[in-house]
């Protein structure tokens, strides 16, 4: 088994903020998806959502407000999972509810620090 990081990206500015019901529906889909990974014993850490605002540090201590306003997509959250291979990890990622909202999932193998 290898460990993988899922990085969830989307263009959060373009996203319509839905009704309370739609938000609840989306939350449920996320929870169900993560639950199904956990049920397979493959969820290491369901991870976190990241707030939209942030900072970006550049060399020589230059700090700008971020994240990455010059590009549309930003990172919205992450999870840690286990899988036998990249292919299996990608299969799992295909079920991510964020994909139905125009987002993407970056799949990266982890090198334990």
């Amino acid at each position: 088994m290898k460990d993988f990081l899922f990085v969830y990206r989307a263009d959060y500015n373009a996203m319509q903020s839905g009704t309370a019901e739609q938000m609840q529906e989306m939350t449920k889909r996320w929870m169900d998806w993560l639950g199904s990974i956990a049920a397979q014993g493959k969820l290491i850490d369901r991870g976190n959502r990241l707030n939209n605002s942030g900072h970006v540090l550049k060399p020589n201590n230059v700090v700008t407000n971020g994240p990455y306003m010059e590009i549309k997509e930003s990172i919205g959250g992450y999870s840690l999972i286990k899988a036998e291979s990249y292919d299996e990890a990608v299969e799992i990622a295909k079920g991510c509810p964020g994909l139905t909202m125009g987002g993407s999932v970056e799949v990266r193998e982890i090198n334990r620090l």
Binding site: Y68, K72, E73, V90, A93, S104, E106, R108, E109, N111
Partner: peptide, 30 residues
């Protein structure tokens, strides 16, 4: 924390297309 090796990374796009890196719209890599 974790390190993420650059090799062999994938992105699953919203239309189900799987691409290799670089990632997103930028060539920057995490």
């Amino acid at each position: 924390g974790n390190g993420l090796p650059f090799d062999d990374a994938r992105v699953v796009q919203h239309d189900g297309v799987v691409t290799n890196g670089p990632f997103g719209e930028i060539k920057e890599t995490i």
